[in-house]
Structure formats: C-alpha cells, structure tokens
Simulated scan of single mutants.
Amino acid sequence: MARHRSDPRGGARITLAVTTVVVALALLAVGAYALFDALNTKSGATDAASGGASSSSSANSSPSGRPPVLMITVTGKQCDIFVSTPGNSDILVNRTFQHGETFIADQPRLQVGISDGGAVEIRVNGVRRPAGKPGQQLSFVATNDGSKPT
C-alpha cells in the first residue's frame, strides 16, 4: 500500500490567497484614507467664493484688518493652483479651481504655482499682481513682510 502525500502546492495556494486578500484590504484602506483626506482638505484649506471675488473689504481682509497675504480668483474657465509653505512642508492646496472660485491664504511665506497665469487674478498683500499671459505657468513666493513677490 502506497503512502498518501499532500500536494506540495496546496500550502503555496493558501499563502497566495491570504496575501491577495491582505493586499486588497490594504489598498482599500489607503483609498478610503485618501478620499477622506481629499474631502477634508478641499473644504478646510480653501475659501471658495461661489459668486466670484467679493468686492467687500471685510471679505478680503484678515481678522487683523490687513488684507490676506495671498488671494487668487479664477477669472478664466479653470486653473490648477498649488500653494504651500516653504519647502513644501505644508501643502495648502493642490487642485483645479473652476471659474469664480477664490483661494485665500494668510501664512507669512507661501510658494505659489499656477498653471495658467491668464486665467487668474492674484493679489499679494492686497496689491494686484500683473496678469500673466494665457497658458503661461507662474511660480512665485508671496510674503507678508511688505516686499514685492519674487
């Protein structure tokens, strides 16, 4: 009578199935976290004015009475806007804004990247920055120390 041996591939199949389930759960968790973070960042880091830029001085100034360091209003169809603190240590916004949306930030120093300089109106410390050409990418640093943006 011959001995019965178990299939040597049986253990590998079980290990592969368990690994696949663990990887799928990990991807699901990462996706859920990213979605949760994106939804919170969109509502918390931006100040979207649905009716366009407000002409009211109280809406365009910080609680201290001075204008915010940076205010970007999309005047074109849409524009990608990236704003962070120096060294990208804290990304305040990195998304596509639609016509009429406004982003306001009041940190002491901000790095700004804009995909279409002709599609936005930019104010640094309340002073309007010269408009870029349509399709021109803009990159500059905005500071609250009264110096002109670079």
Score class of each variant (00 low, 15 high):
103 F>Y: 12
93 V>C: 13
120 V>I: 12
116 D>R: 08
97 F>C: 05
98 Q>M: 11
114 I>T: 01
101 E>Q: 15
97 F>M: 13
95 R>P: 01
110 L>G: 03
109 R>E: 14
111 Q>K: 12
123 R>A: 05
100 G>Q: 10
107 Q>F: 13
112 V>K: 01
97 F>S: 05
116 D>V: 07
106 D>L: 01
123 R>W: 09
123 R>G: 01
108 P>V: 02
116 D>E: 08
121 E>C: 06
120 V>D: 03
100 G>E: 09
88 N>H: 12
124 V>D: 04
98 Q>L: 13
103 F>A: 07
99 H>Q: 15
103 F>V: 05
94 N>M: 06
91 I>A: 10
102 T>Q: 04
117 G>K: 08
119 A>Y: 10
116 D>I: 06
103 F>Q: 01
97 F>D: 03
110 L>T: 03
120 V>A: 06
113 G>F: 15
111 Q>F: 08
107 Q>I: 03
114 I>N: 01
121 E>P: 00
119 A>S: 15
93 V>D: 05
122 I>M: 03
111 Q>I: 10
100 G>M: 09
105 A>M: 04
94 N>W: 14
110 L>H: 03
95 R>F: 11
90 D>C: 00
108 P>G: 02
98 Q>V: 08
123 R>L: 04
111 Q>H: 11
120 V>S: 05
114 I>Y: 04
117 G>M: 05
97 F>V: 04
88 N>D: 14
113 G>A: 14
105 A>F: 04
91 I>F: 05
91 I>K: 15
97 F>W: 07
88 N>T: 11
122 I>E: 03
120 V>Y: 10
108 P>H: 07
96 T>Q: 15
116 D>C: 07
104 I>F: 00
105 A>G: 12
98 Q>P: 00
118 G>C: 03
116 D>N: 15
100 G>L: 11
92 L>P: 00
90 D>I: 04
110 L>M: 07
115 S>K: 12
104 I>Q: 11
93 V>L: 13
124 V>S: 03
104 I>Y: 04
119 A>Q: 09
99 H>M: 11
115 S>H: 11
101 E>C: 05
